[in-house]
Design a protein around this nucleic acid. Structure first.
Lengths: 144, 144
DNA sequence: ACACTAATTATAAACATTATAAAGTAATAA
DNA sequence: TTATTACTTTATAATGTTTATAATTAGTGT
């Protein structure tokens, strides 16, 4: 069992969230998957291990993980949300042609948050940012 | 008729998009509304003027406006998208308690786009950013 | 005013996500 | 170890947003 998974399970224990086999498996999948899966991806991936698992379970637990801060939800309008196990502060660069998502490390935009707080009077908690474009593969294809 | 509306209609003409009464009304509503309405907000607001208008018309036209660059779509997972008539480059500060959205002017994050392009090899087109927190009203209420 | 093409309407379908209630199970303490 | 209790899971249905389809209607340039 990976260190990250152990830490994640500890977090659950500390916050009083029960550790069920389903939760264990979903977390494990999120940590091992280097992608940004949808709830349905996870559901399908775990079908073998849990033939009776309900989609609702996946959604419920992703919400639980989000609430305890283990997972970040990336929303895209009517398309499915994607879920990202939080390791370090990073942003996402998204290909508008094929949908590929690449992590992009960048220092947090603290300055923007401060200015926003000053200008609007909000108490700022966090922000999201995504960068859109064409990945190398897709822009090569379009160059024809 | 406002200047902005005139310009918007010109943009439609230039890009070969037909100007229908429905499109005129949707644009007018978007420009006059200082809020960030959902498709359904718009649909309901124009019910009086167009009792037979279909929701699909609203969605179709919002997509058209987005494609010609008049309107920006703000997505929030399973909740409805919100639509914003584009005037100048600005971001949004969103209250997580009451949902209020406030515009926040800030120079575009060109540097972030450049670095992302350099690091990932993507051809960057644009980005989105939102800042989340508690608005003054809501943070005052929570102070009790 | 005509013809051509695109837009609108009405309806149904698709899809993601959430609600509900019954059955099952992890965690705690005796 | 076992019993208890509250939380989870499952199965299913419902909700809500958005899109697809086909028939009708209506802009726009000539």
């Amino acid at each position: 069992m990976s260190n990250q998974l152990k830490e994640a399970l500890d977090t659950l224990k500390e916050t009083g969230v029960r550790i069920t086999p389903q939760r264990h498996a979903i977390l494990e999948y999120l940590i091992n998957s280097m992608s940004h899966p949808t709830a349905d991806d996870i559901y399908k991936a775990l079908e073998g291990k849990f033939p009776n698992m309900s989609v609702a379970t996946v959604y419920n637990n992703l919400r639980v993980f989000r609430e305890v801060g283990l997972v970040k939800e990336l929303t895209y309008g009517d398309a499915s949300s994607r879920f990202d196990y939080i390791t370090s502060q990073h942003y996402h660069v998204i290909c508008e042609d094929c949908g590929k998502i690449v992590d992009f490390h960048y220092p947090g935009l603290d300055e923007v948050e401060h200015l926003a707080s000053h200008v609007t009077g909000f108490k700022i908690g966090h922000h999201r940012m995504e960068i859109y474009g064409a990945c190398p593969d897709c822009s090569a294809q379009k160059a024809h």
